[in-house]
Nucleic acid binder design. Structure first.
Length: 815
RNA sequence: GCGGCGGUGGCGAAACCGGUAAACGCGACGGCCUCAAAAGCCGUUGUCCGCAAGGGCUUGCGGGUUCGAGUCCCGCCCGCCGCACCA
């Protein structure tokens, strides 16, 4: 055995230097052939400190995919950038006074250094940070495009406010009533804010999910988030006040069971309704209490159903009945119309409220199994109206809606859970919103030629309920582009999700200083063929990016309706204790020390081997060493075999040569199938391990030609996971550069053996195994199985009722 | 509560279409090499009974379909993730 040690610290920098010098992974837009392109993209990192183990995982997974596709003849676009605006850098600045740009840039430098040491095959000519003016200039440009189409708008709204971060939050950034960033309880405030009209796209965002190859659970989460409900809007009138109140219901079939009516505490008419009824004081104190409650206190379905009588009634449009009006916090202002008809017989919440307030409960749908009320299921209508009683409720539903429509008291409609995207933030470290406020002209967009509106430097980053930018007086005071009079710049910045909603478009044409992109160039690369990232972005980022693409497609600015044709969500790397990594648990594993000690190839291959990449998996130091052992074994094998005579693989192999060549072709076939869209990296690597094991096992008996082919094949197959070692070993064995070689193809003749082991069962239990010729017909297989010694013994005094023959697998005798 | 995913050796896992359960790796045990150790190489390793030959049992639990079920169907239990007073 050769004695040269496997030394990644020598091998890895050597090949990285070759790739950098030769610009191996760069692709030129001019050279792209549309039917050969593959756009492989991992979610861009948020640069904070050093890269962590999760980054190593996404980029190892993505790089394996990129390498495989290149060697299958694809022109692969595989770029990298940084999602560089955001709160952590700003909070750091508030603590330390260090400019967020400075800490962000030093983190980016750490990412660049480490990702290069990992040998990831990136086209670095397309790199950018979203905080660079040459990028956010175009973020602002897109904002103006959307503004002019009415898709970006300003309105005062009840918004979620984080008192700790002193900023508003998007609905999506509120988790269980708490700020996604800092965990502080969220309050509701009335503020004027900027929104994107994503709700206009609700149906398309929903329908187009069917056309993309995404994991089912991600699609489900998006569907739930959009929350489309079909139902009807029905008008109840308050005669004493002369006002109509529409409600949304998914169950117009239960209208005859409505025994009271409820509006949300935030409803603008609450006090007007209570006025003069003697209920004012009670209502006022209830509303005040409800509005100061935290989202969490108010949020739970288990919370007791509180509420107060408003002193008035409304008329049920289907039967003219006067039913009492209540204000109660279980009704939400932001969904539907902020008012509901309450049907306690068939809705659990209304039932709870009715019981607590002693209101009538009426059954209008009979339950086939005799279930008690509240009964939310289907069944024939009862106690409603002679025209509808006896009809199945789903049919009655349609008929009732038709009737309402004819009478002008309601109509079929659709309601969504999805809200418009609140994009303004009262924070410093973000992309400035490119508008000015003029006393005379109102909101005026900054002319395109004046973009970017650059983020000015300030000395105090702490938010004080307004953006820190407001303190930059020289910057804020400007002139109106329309009337040239005095104007003030918008001081809010954009949510960082805006920056990351289009970065994949910019990669296609990253050097373009004349436009955000050349549409012809975008047409060549888009859409992203394979997107890779964590499930934590299943809703926010992935929904926003889809919305942007659709909105930009509608403006004719680009052609991709869907940004990401296929999505792969990788699982988390857990700590050695199988717990989520966290500083407080002290179980954080950093990539750098492992890369230093074992090499990037070992770290990358281990990460791909530790389990199916879409599942969570715990880090294990022992297993890392096992993978390192495997790579060292392959390295040693290559050195040994390289010293043998330079024979070609035998054309008519026999014995050990045949066995080894078969194993090599089996491995080619297995790895190819595992990598081809399956991301089954763990089993692909296992197959290469088997090939290496057999190469050792047969090293005394197989000839140099077969041994060289087997070793070179192992090097070639391992390349997507361990590119440096793959290149090194392959070069030693063949003199060629593995990344310039096409992906190997299995020879079908060597995939078939001329005999196989036939399993012989009696009553479904394996009793014997015999070697049989591959081409044996069924009758012969049955005879051979009968003749197997242990089978013959068992069948001896028994009568065979049936024999099942599965060629290629088994024979089963039923006795 | 609703939706999704999962439960297989001591551990990470494999079994892609209903056809040999446990590939590959870790760990453990044994052997070779060595003055010795490390490294390396070669074995054994689901579990129970048995000296062995061999046999029984085994994919969270209980049923079912089938010649045959980890895989399909029905009913449970447990874990993780998402949503959750959305009318």
């Amino acid at each position: 055995m050769a004695e040269a040690r496997y030394d990644p610290t020598r091998i890895e920098p050597k090949w990285q230097a070759v790739w950098a010098k030769e610009r191996t992974w760069e692709v030129r837009n001019e050279d792209v052939e549309p039917d050969r392109k593959s756009y492989v993209l991992e979610m861009l990192p948020y640069p904070s400190g050093e890269p962590h183990i999760g980054h190593l995982k996404v980029y190892s997974v993505g790089d394996a995919n990129a390498h495989f596709l290149r060697r299958r003849g694809r022109q692969v676009l595989h770029p990298m950038g940084y999602d560089a605006f955001g709160l952590p850098a700003e909070n750091h600045a508030i603590r330390t006074g260090v400019h967020p740009r400075e800490s962000t840039d030093s983190s980016i430098a750490a990412f660049q250094r480490q990702m290069r040491s990992w040998g990831i095959s990136i086209d670095w000519t397309r790199e950018f940070g979203t905080h660079e003016p040459r990028y956010y200039r175009w973020t602002q440009w897109i904002f103006l495009e959307l503004y002019e189409r009415g898709l970006a708008y300003r309105k005062e709204a009840a918004v979620k406010w984080c008192p700790n971060d002193q900023t508003v939050l998007a609905n999506e950034q509120v988790i269980d009533g708490h700020c996604e960033r800092c965990g502080h309880g969220v309050e509701v405030r009335q503020l004027e804010q900027w929104f994107f009209r994503i709700t206009d796209y609700a149906d398309r965002l929903l329908d187009d999910l069917d056309a993309i190859a995404w994991p089912e659970h991600v699609k489900t989460m998006q569907r739930n988030w959009i929350g489309r409900s079909e139902g009807a809007e029905v008008t109840f009138s308050c005669g004493s006040l002369g006002v109509d109140y529409p409600v949304f219901t998914t169950r117009p079939d239960t209208l005859f069971g409505a025994t009271f009516f409820v509006i949300a505490p935030e409803h603008p008419d609450v006090m007007r309704l209570a006025a003069g009824t003697g209920q004012e004081d009670e209502v006022l104190s209830y509303v005040n209490h409800a509005l100061t409650e935290s989202a969490e206190e108010r949020g739970s379905a288990e919370a007791p159903k509180t509420g107060v009588f408003l002193g008035r009634t409304v008329t049920n449009p289907v039967n003219g009945e006067e039913i009492p009006m209540y204000v109660a916090d279980y009704v939400l202002m932001e969904y539907g119309t902020g008012a509901i008809m309450a049907v306690p017989g068939h809705d659990a919440r209304d039932f709870a409220f009715a019981e607590a307030h002693d209101l009538p409960i009426r059954r209008v749908v009979s339950s086939p199994q005799g279930e008690e009320l509240p009964y939310p299921g289907d069944g024939p209508l009862v106690g409603s109206h002679p025209d509808f009683d006896g009809l199945h409720n789903r049919e009655a539903l349609d008929r009732i809606v038709e009737w309402l429509d004819r009478e002008g008291r309601g109509h079929a409609t659709v309601s969504y859970r999805l809200r418009d995207w609140l994009l303004s933030r009262q924070r410093y470290w973000g992309c400035p919103i490119p508008v000015v406020h003029c006393e005379r002209c109102g909101v005026v967009p900054v002319p395109r030629a004046e973009l970017p509106v650059e983020l000015p430097d300030v000395s105090d980053y702490a938010p004080r309920g307004r953006s820190p930018l407001a303190a930059a007086e020289d910057w804020v005071n400007t002139t109106c582009p329309e009337c040239a009079g005095p104007a003030r710049r918008e001081t809010d910045t954009m949510d960082t999700f805006v920056d990351s909603s289009w970065y994949f478009l910019r990669y296609c044409d990253a050097q373009n200083d004349e436009a955000a992109w050349d549409p012809a160039v975008l047409d060549r690369w888009m859409n992203v063929d394979q997107y890779i990232g964590g499930v934590e972005h299943a809703i926010l980022h992935l929904m926003y990016a889809r919305f942007f693409c659709k909105a930009l497609a509608d403006s004719g600015l680009q052609g991709a309706e869907e940004p990401f044709a296929a999505l792969f969500t990788q699982g988390m790397v857990l700590g050695p204790d199988s717990q989520k990594m966290s500083k407080s648990r002290g179980n954080v594993v950093s990539p750098a020390p492992y890369v230093e000690r074992f090499g990037a190839d070992t770290a990358r291959t281990y990460i791909c081997f530790m389990g199916p990449p879409d599942q969570d998996a715990a880090w294990s130091d022992e297993s890392v060493e096992g993978v390192h052992r495997f790579l060292a074994r392959l390295h040693r094998l290559a050195l040994d075999v390289a010293e043998l005579s330079d024979d070609a693989a035998p054309a008519a192999p026999e014995g050990a040569d045949l066995a080894l060549l078969r194993k090599a072709h089996w491995a080619i076939e297995k790895v190819t199938q595992d990598l081809d869209g399956r991301f089954a990296f763990n089993t692909a690597i296992a197959a290469i391990m088997e090939l290496v094991n057999d190469s050792y096992r047969l090293r005394e008996d197989a000839g140099p030609g077969a041994r060289r082919f087997a070793a070179a094949t192992a090097a070639s197959l391992v390349f997507p996971f361990a590119p440096h070692l793959g290149s090194e070993a392959y070069e030693r064995l063949t003199g060629a550069r593995v990344w310039e070689e096409p992906w190997p193809e299995a020879d079908p003749a060597l995939l078939e053996a001329d005999s196989y082991e036939l399993v012989c069962q009696v009553n479904g239990k394996v009793r014997d195994r015999v070697q049989v010729p591959s081409d044996a017909p069924r009758e012969e297989l049955e005879e051979l199985a009968r003749a197997a010694p242990r089978i013959a013994a068992l069948l001896a005094g028994a009568s065979v009722r049936k024999a099942i023959v599965v060629p290629g697998r088994l024979v089963n005798f039923v006795v």
